[in-house]
């Protein structure tokens, strides 16, 4: 059969859209190219060839390269890539369980939940040590999600209620954030502001390590749940009819999605619109089946964020824009375009 690539052995079998492998390879190569460019960019420019040599531990003329790349720039690029992956998978899952192409962690209030807690800490308790911030943000994302789920519960959770309540929660928490930014100390406000916008500035290996376990557990889990996402996308009745435990699956998927967003937000702040754009672009490339959509969206999200970080550092150099500004600048019009398209179907 030529529509799907089928893999079958005695123990396992699965299928994937035939477009997926080639798309993954191309996206991977583009991302790699952007990373190489990105690692060479900065106050101390390094040519891509030297970047590659340094990465592969081949001797270069300049002994500083190793430090600049491995200690300063590589963790930052990797973090940009990984939070992009996290946001993208999270958004793809949310779009599946809400059956709404406009759902994303930043639209339905999960990012806002993380932000409000993080901003409260930055503005109200500036003396709290830095390591508390990611934990607080992570907790905030979860509290927001639980609140949305409970408020949307009415003898069962319905996708449309999840979205509407989520949008409401987002609006409310954003109002609270505005109040804090208005009345806070100017120094802490500007720090909070950068955090809200989403930035990978100054991220090092110690920021990367706490993110990894989440991704290592949650990404395979999301892939295992892609079959369930496929049937949930057909509606609750159809999903129940083919034997899906709809409420349980939805909760499990929601937790996976929120944990991915939480871990990403905790690392880099709320890099906006990646969770919205990446699944969309991926769907255009490989179709709607989640087995192929999730990995494609993941790479797409990573690529977008790495590119946004590169653009943020080069467009107005030496002034540096947080990568969240770039993703929002592209993402907001994209969101409007999707809204427009949705209306005119």
């Amino acid at each position: 059969m030529n529509h799907w690539i089928t893999v079958r052995s005695r123990q396992i079998s699965f299928r994937i859209d035939r477009r997926v492998p080639i798309v993954l390879v191309v996206l991977g190569l583009i991302t790699l190219a952007i990373v190489l460019l990105s690692l060479g960019q900065g106050e101390y420019p390094i040519s891509p060839i030297d970047v590659l040599k340094t990465l592969l531990k081949i001797e270069t003329d300049n002994a500083d390269y190793d430090f600049i790349i491995h200690t300063l720039r590589l963790p930052r690029a990797l973090i940009a890539f990984l939070v992009g992956v996290g946001f993208a998978i999270s958004g793809a899952i949310l779009q599946g369980i809400t059956r709404n192409p406009l759902a994303a962690p930043d639209i339905i209030g999960i990012n806002a939940g993380a932000s409000v807690v993080a901003v409260s800490f930055i503005v109200l308790f500036p003396s709290v040590p830095g390591f508390v911030l990611p934990i607080a943000a992570f907790a905030g994302a979860f509290v927001a999600a639980i609140l949305i789920y409970l408020l949307a519960w009415d003898g069962g959770s319905s996708p449309i209620r999840l979205i509407l309540i989520g949008v409401g929660i987002a609006a409310f928490t954003n109002a609270v954030i505005s109040v804090m930014l208005t009345f806070g100390q100017i120094n802490s406000v500007s720090q909070a502001w950068i955090w809200i916008t989403g930035s990978v500035y100054g991220r090092s290996w110690e920021h990367l390590l706490p993110l990894l376990p989440w991704l290592i557990v949650l990404i395979p889990l999301a892939l295992l749940l892609s079959r369930d996402l496929n049937v949930l996308h057909l509606g609750d009745d159809v999903a129940r009819g083919v034997g899906s435990r709809v409420e349980w699956q939805r909760v499990l998927l929601l937790i996976t999605s929120v944990a991915l967003t939480g871990a990403s937000v905790a690392t880099a702040g709320t890099v906006g619109f990646v969770g919205l754009m990446a699944p969309h672009l991926a769907r255009q490339l490989v179709g709607t089946a989640y087995e192929g959509l999730l990995p494609t969206a993941a790479l797409m999200g990573g690529m977008i964020t790495v590119l946004a970080d590169l653009l943020g550092r080069t467009l107005f150099a030496p002034t540096e824009l947080p990568c969240g500004v770039i993703t929002a600048t592209i993402g907001a019009p994209y969101f409007l375009y999707l809204l427009y398209q949705n209306r005119h179907q």
């Binding site: 079958r8 123990q11 079998s13 699965f14 299928r15 496929n230 049937v231 057909l234 159809v238 083919v242």
Partner: peptide, 16 residues
């Protein structure tokens, strides 16, 4: 293909 959901599991996702 979604109709096959109840006949599949995590390992066997697409049998003959």
């Amino acid at each position: 293909a979604q109709g096959r959901y109840p006949h599949q599991n995590w390992l066997q996702q697409w049998s003959k």
